[in-house]
């Protein structure tokens, strides 16, 4: 009798271990909407984009013809923990790398002289740290859809003012926004193996702050415009461990406010973006990469952004 009971307990424990291992190895299509209780996820995201084109007032995609080169990269360290099967905590630590260069040739025929001036500015450092809480309002299963709400806060931990000013165009760029922002996100997802689709909406509110906008100027009160995003994704598995994601995203961002009034130098931005993404699942390790492609917009950057995402679940 004891042997039978002991055997059945050992069998069920083994089954649980297998189930846990299977969940940790699930793909981006089949993974639970939030991390299971006690699961810990460590991730790193690398992003890169260059300043090249933009959507104009007439929604036309045009190159920025003036001299100048800007490249932007942000590396995120992501930590997520499943507090319960429905509640997940997450922390994103960004490191920002910016480089902007200009070169101007001044010609003075009266003096018969030519002079080249080159400016190179960098901005390297910690960005704004983000903390988030996700909760499954509707707990998803293979048969039932999930509905997840996420509330996150970005704290102004990054450098907000230009520093180490050498010239009007040559200084250390700020790596932070200089204000606290909150994000409220709602995501609906349904799995129909080997496919999944989702819809989501996001609202961002910024509380504003005070910072120096340009070198040699005094700090002024400001508030970034609120942002609204809505989108959907259609995802499918190519095989047991390779998934393809297709996200379509609509973005609307209000103009910024300086000294309580709409800033003359910023405009409401509108954009529609497509984000194809391929994800490889090697047991508990995941590698995903994609390109964020702006398709349409108004006063919106039109530069593709390359993303590389690495994750491991403990």
């Amino acid at each position: 009798m004891i042997l039978i009971i002991a055997g059945s307990i050992a069998y069920s424990q083994e089954e649980d271990r297998l189930l846990v291992a299977e969940i940790k190895q699930s793909t981006v299509i089949t993974e639970p909407a939030t991390l299971r209780k006690g699961f810990f996820k460590l991730g790193a995201i690398f992003t890169y984009t260059a300043d090249d084109r933009l959507f104009t007032e007439n929604c036309k995609k045009e190159y920025e013809p003036e001299n100048g080169w800007g490249s932007y990269s942000t590396e995120y360290l992501l930590l997520s923990y499943g507090l319960t099967n429905r509640l997940e905590l997450s922390l994103a630590l960004p490191y920002v790398i910016k480089t902007i260069t200009y070169s101007i040739i001044d010609e003075t025929p009266v003096n018969d002289s030519t002079m080249r001036t080159q400016y190179k500015s960098r901005g390297n450092g910690l960005g704004d740290i983000e903390f988030g809480i996700s909760y499954q309002l509707l707990e998803g299963t293979n048969a039932k859809p999930s509905l997840v709400s996420k509330l996150s806060v970005a704290f102004p931990t990054g450098q907000k003012n230009p520093a180490n000013i050498r010239e009007i165009f040559e200084y250390d760029y700020p790596t932070g926004k200089g204000e606290t922002s909150v994000y409220l996100e709602l995501t609906y997802r349904k799995i129909t193996y080997p496919y999944s689709y989702s819809f989501y909406g996001l609202f961002q509110y910024s509380f504003g702050g005070e910072k120096v906008m340009l070198p040699y100027e005094n700090s002024i009160p400001f508030r970034s415009g609120n942002s609204y995003q809505a989108g959907g994704s259609f995802n499918f598995l190519l095989n047991d461990w390779i998934a393809v994601r297709n996200d379509l995203l609509f973005v609307y961002r209000q103009a910024d406010e300086y000294k309580g009034e709409t800033a003359m130098t910023t405009f409401p931005q509108t954009g529609i973006c497509y984000n194809p993404n391929i994800s490889f699942q090697f047991r508990k390790f995941r590698l995903a990469q994609g390109v964020f492609i702006p398709l349409f917009g108004r006063y919106f950057p039109a530069n593709p952004q390359y993303n590389l995402d690495l994750q491991y679940i403990f």
Binding site: E64, E66, N67, G68, S103, I104, I105, D106, E107, P109
Partner: peptide
């Protein structure tokens, strides 16, 4: 591909 050149400022007068 779009290729920019260096910008030129021409000062005819002081």
């Amino acid at each position: 591909r779009g290729e920019r050149s260096e910008s030129h400022r021409i000062w005819v007068t002081y």
